[in-house]
């Protein structure tokens, strides 16, 4: 934390988040034809949205919430449960949920 001089690093993240959000909104409004191609059950555009969201989330957690500057043990304590449990929950619910169609 002490390695930060000034506030430029905060504003850098602000611009990154703003630009990503703008890109998302513009894509959401125009919905380019080429990105509506289906891939594994949903449009490519949706993958783009999800990836951009995870990038945004990573910047918020890493920089704004300071996880980047925590020690290794703390990083594991925070990342392992979320990165294992949330994908697991999503996977199991959507897989089991697909039986609702039958």
């Amino acid at each position: 934390m002490a390695d930060h001089k000034g506030t430029w690093w905060i504003w850098k993240i602000f611009w990154i988040l703003l630009i990503i959000t703008t890109v998302e909104v513009v894509l959401g409004i125009i919905k380019p034809e080429i990105m509506l191609t289906q891939l594994f059950g949903t449009a490519i555009l949706n993958y783009v949205f999800i990836i951009l969201t995870i990038v945004k989330a990573a910047y918020i957690v890493q920089v704004f919430m300071h996880v980047k500057f925590e020690n290794k043990a703390m990083k594991y304590v925070l990342y392992l449960p979320t990165l294992i449990l949330i994908p697991y929950l999503t996977f199991i619910l959507l897989t089991e949920g697909s039986y609702l169609f039958q």
Binding site: E24, G28, N46, F49, I50, L52, A57, I60, V61, M65
Partner: peptide, 14 residues
Amino acid sequence: DLVWVFVFTFFYLV
């Protein structure tokens, strides 16, 4: 803010 980023994507964009 972090939660809103996800709500925004899954409720309004996708």
